[in-house]
Structure formats: C-alpha cells, structure tokens
Measured scan of single mutants.
Amino acid sequence: GGHPVTTQMVETVQNLAPNLHPEQIRYSLENTGSVEETVERYLRGDEFSFPP
C-alpha cells in the first residue's frame, strides 16, 4: 500500500463499519486508496488484516 490516508477517510469507514478496528481500516485504505472500495470489501465480508 502507498495511498495517503486521512483521519476523515478512516472516520467515514468507521461510521459504516463500526466493528472494524481503526488500524484495520487504515491498512485497507492504504491498499485500496478508496473509502468506497474499503466499504465494499467490508460488505462483501472480506477479511480485514492488521498492518504487519
């Protein structure tokens, strides 16, 4: 991942996926670069990993 992630982006995802840890959200956003894509992954039931 190398996309810039803002606190705003993390908070937006958190509102839609409250049971995800912020670190999981941030890591996913760094890989996708997209709030929409991260939320899609969540709704699909994809696994969210923590940063290594």
Score class of each variant (00 low, 15 high):
residue 13 V to D: 00
residue 2 G to C: 14
residue 39 V to S: 05
residue 35 V to I: 13
residue 20 L to T: 01
residue 22 P to G: 05
residue 42 Y to N: 00
residue 11 E to S: 10
residue 12 T to K: 13
residue 40 E to W: 12
residue 1 G to N: 12
residue 15 N to P: 06
residue 50 F to I: 05
residue 10 V to Y: 06
residue 20 L to W: 03
residue 46 D to R: 05
residue 32 T to K: 00
residue 38 T to K: 00
residue 49 S to Q: 14
residue 14 Q to F: 08
residue 38 T to E: 00
residue 1 G to V: 12
residue 40 E to Q: 15
residue 11 E to K: 12
residue 33 G to E: 04
residue 44 R to W: 04
residue 24 Q to I: 03
residue 51 P to K: 05
residue 9 M to T: 02
residue 23 E to V: 08
residue 42 Y to A: 06
residue 7 T to R: 14
residue 44 R to L: 07
residue 7 T to V: 13
residue 33 G to N: 07
residue 16 L to V: 11
residue 34 S to K: 04
residue 5 V to P: 06
residue 21 H to W: 07
residue 3 H to K: 11
residue 8 Q to G: 10
residue 4 P to V: 15
residue 25 I to E: 03
residue 27 Y to G: 02
residue 18 P to H: 08
residue 13 V to Q: 02
residue 51 P to A: 06
residue 50 F to L: 06
residue 31 N to E: 15
residue 20 L to P: 00
residue 2 G to P: 15
residue 20 L to D: 01
residue 26 R to H: 07
residue 28 S to H: 06
residue 1 G to C: 13
residue 46 D to Y: 12
residue 45 G to H: 04
residue 9 M to L: 05
residue 33 G to V: 03
residue 20 L to S: 01
residue 20 L to Q: 02
residue 19 N to R: 11
residue 39 V to E: 02
residue 52 P to M: 09
residue 26 R to V: 08
residue 28 S to I: 05
residue 37 E to D: 09
residue 39 V to K: 03
residue 51 P to W: 04
residue 9 M to A: 06
residue 47 E to M: 12
residue 35 V to Q: 03
residue 13 V to L: 04
residue 23 E to K: 08
residue 38 T to R: 00
residue 17 A to W: 05
residue 36 E to H: 11
residue 27 Y to P: 00
residue 12 T to E: 14
residue 30 E to H: 08
residue 38 T to A: 02
residue 36 E to K: 11
residue 29 L to H: 02
residue 2 G to Q: 13
residue 14 Q to E: 05
residue 48 F to G: 01
residue 6 T to H: 06
residue 26 R to A: 07
residue 24 Q to D: 00
residue 28 S to N: 06
residue 42 Y to M: 03
residue 48 F to A: 01
residue 15 N to R: 15
residue 37 E to Y: 08
residue 26 R to I: 10
residue 35 V to T: 06
residue 31 N to G: 09
residue 47 E to D: 12
residue 23 E to D: 15
residue 41 R to L: 09
residue 28 S to R: 00
residue 52 P to F: 09
residue 6 T to E: 04
residue 21 H to E: 07
residue 39 V to Q: 04
residue 36 E to I: 11
residue 12 T to N: 10
residue 22 P to H: 08
residue 42 Y to P: 00
residue 32 T to V: 03
residue 4 P to D: 11
residue 31 N to R: 11
residue 25 I to K: 01
residue 27 Y to Q: 05
residue 22 P to M: 09
residue 49 S to Y: 12
residue 19 N to K: 11
residue 20 L to N: 01
residue 44 R to H: 07
residue 52 P to S: 09
residue 37 E to T: 09
residue 22 P to N: 05
residue 23 E to A: 14
residue 40 E to K: 15
residue 50 F to T: 03
residue 49 S to F: 13
residue 30 E to G: 07
residue 50 F to R: 03
residue 33 G to Q: 07
residue 1 G to E: 11
residue 26 R to P: 02
residue 17 A to Y: 09
residue 4 P to G: 11
residue 4 P to E: 13
residue 37 E to S: 08
residue 5 V to K: 03
residue 24 Q to C: 07
residue 9 M to Y: 02
residue 46 D to E: 15
residue 34 S to F: 02
residue 39 V to N: 03
residue 8 Q to C: 11
residue 36 E to P: 07
residue 14 Q to H: 11
residue 17 A to V: 09
residue 18 P to L: 08
residue 29 L to T: 01
residue 51 P to C: 05
residue 29 L to I: 06
residue 42 Y to F: 10
residue 27 Y to T: 04
residue 24 Q to V: 03
residue 18 P to D: 04
residue 16 L to Y: 11
residue 33 G to Y: 06
residue 6 T to G: 04
residue 25 I to T: 01
residue 10 V to P: 00
residue 31 N to C: 14
residue 17 A to K: 01
residue 28 S to V: 04
residue 33 G to K: 06
residue 26 R to F: 07
residue 14 Q to C: 10
residue 1 G to D: 10
residue 16 L to G: 03
residue 41 R to K: 11
residue 39 V to H: 05
residue 43 L to T: 07
residue 4 P to M: 14
residue 38 T to Y: 01
residue 21 H to L: 09
residue 42 Y to L: 05
residue 6 T to R: 04
residue 48 F to M: 08
residue 10 V to E: 05
residue 47 E to H: 14
residue 48 F to N: 01
residue 38 T to I: 05
residue 26 R to Q: 08
residue 41 R to F: 07
residue 34 S to H: 03
residue 50 F to K: 02
residue 25 I to G: 00
residue 44 R to N: 09
residue 51 P to Q: 04
residue 44 R to T: 05
residue 14 Q to W: 10
residue 9 M to W: 07
residue 36 E to R: 11
residue 1 G to Y: 14
residue 31 N to W: 13
residue 9 M to E: 06
residue 30 E to L: 11
residue 41 R to A: 13
residue 23 E to S: 12
residue 22 P to Y: 11
residue 13 V to K: 00
residue 26 R to S: 06
residue 1 G to K: 11
residue 27 Y to H: 09
residue 25 I to Y: 01
residue 48 F to W: 01
residue 13 V to W: 01
residue 39 V to F: 09
residue 35 V to L: 08
residue 23 E to Y: 09
residue 24 Q to L: 05
residue 29 L to D: 00
residue 42 Y to G: 00
residue 44 R to Y: 04
residue 43 L to Q: 09
residue 27 Y to I: 05
residue 31 N to D: 11
residue 14 Q to L: 13
residue 17 A to M: 08
residue 43 L to I: 10
residue 1 G to L: 12
residue 32 T to R: 00
residue 41 R to Y: 06
residue 23 E to W: 11
residue 2 G to M: 14
residue 28 S to G: 02
residue 3 H to W: 13
residue 43 L to D: 04
residue 2 G to V: 14
residue 48 F to S: 01
residue 19 N to P: 05
residue 10 V to W: 06
residue 52 P to K: 07
residue 8 Q to I: 12
residue 2 G to F: 14
residue 24 Q to G: 01
residue 3 H to I: 10
residue 48 F to D: 01
residue 41 R to I: 07
residue 3 H to D: 08
residue 48 F to P: 01
residue 43 L to C: 08
residue 2 G to A: 13
residue 13 V to P: 00
residue 38 T to L: 05
residue 15 N to F: 14
residue 10 V to N: 03
residue 17 A to Q: 02
residue 19 N to M: 11
residue 10 V to K: 03
residue 42 Y to D: 00
residue 27 Y to R: 05
residue 29 L to W: 02
residue 16 L to F: 12
residue 47 E to K: 12
residue 12 T to D: 11
residue 45 G to S: 03
residue 34 S to C: 05
residue 4 P to Q: 13
residue 51 P to G: 08
residue 31 N to M: 15
residue 7 T to K: 14
residue 37 E to Q: 10
residue 7 T to H: 13
residue 24 Q to K: 04
residue 52 P to W: 09
residue 45 G to F: 02
residue 21 H to R: 09
residue 23 E to L: 15
residue 40 E to T: 13
residue 4 P to A: 13
residue 30 E to S: 11
residue 12 T to V: 12
residue 1 G to I: 12
residue 34 S to L: 03
residue 38 T to P: 00
residue 50 F to N: 03
residue 19 N to F: 11
residue 13 V to N: 01
residue 40 E to V: 12
residue 19 N to A: 10
residue 13 V to G: 00
residue 40 E to A: 15
residue 39 V to R: 03
residue 47 E to P: 12
residue 1 G to A: 13
residue 4 P to S: 12
residue 13 V to R: 00
residue 46 D to K: 07
residue 19 N to Y: 10
residue 26 R to T: 06
residue 6 T to C: 08
residue 6 T to S: 10
residue 35 V to E: 04
residue 41 R to C: 06
residue 22 P to C: 08
residue 18 P to C: 10
residue 22 P to S: 09
residue 3 H to L: 10
residue 22 P to Q: 08
residue 20 L to F: 03
residue 29 L to G: 01
residue 48 F to H: 01
residue 46 D to H: 10
residue 19 N to I: 07
residue 52 P to C: 08
residue 49 S to T: 12
residue 12 T to P: 00
residue 16 L to R: 10
residue 30 E to P: 00
residue 9 M to G: 02
residue 35 V to M: 08
residue 47 E to L: 12
residue 20 L to M: 06
residue 10 V to A: 04
residue 46 D to N: 08
residue 28 S to P: 01
residue 36 E to G: 08
residue 13 V to T: 05
residue 11 E to M: 14
residue 39 V to M: 14
residue 30 E to F: 10
residue 39 V to G: 02
residue 50 F to S: 04
residue 5 V to F: 10
residue 50 F to G: 02
residue 6 T to D: 07
residue 3 H to A: 09
residue 52 P to H: 08
residue 16 L to S: 08
residue 10 V to G: 01
residue 14 Q to A: 12
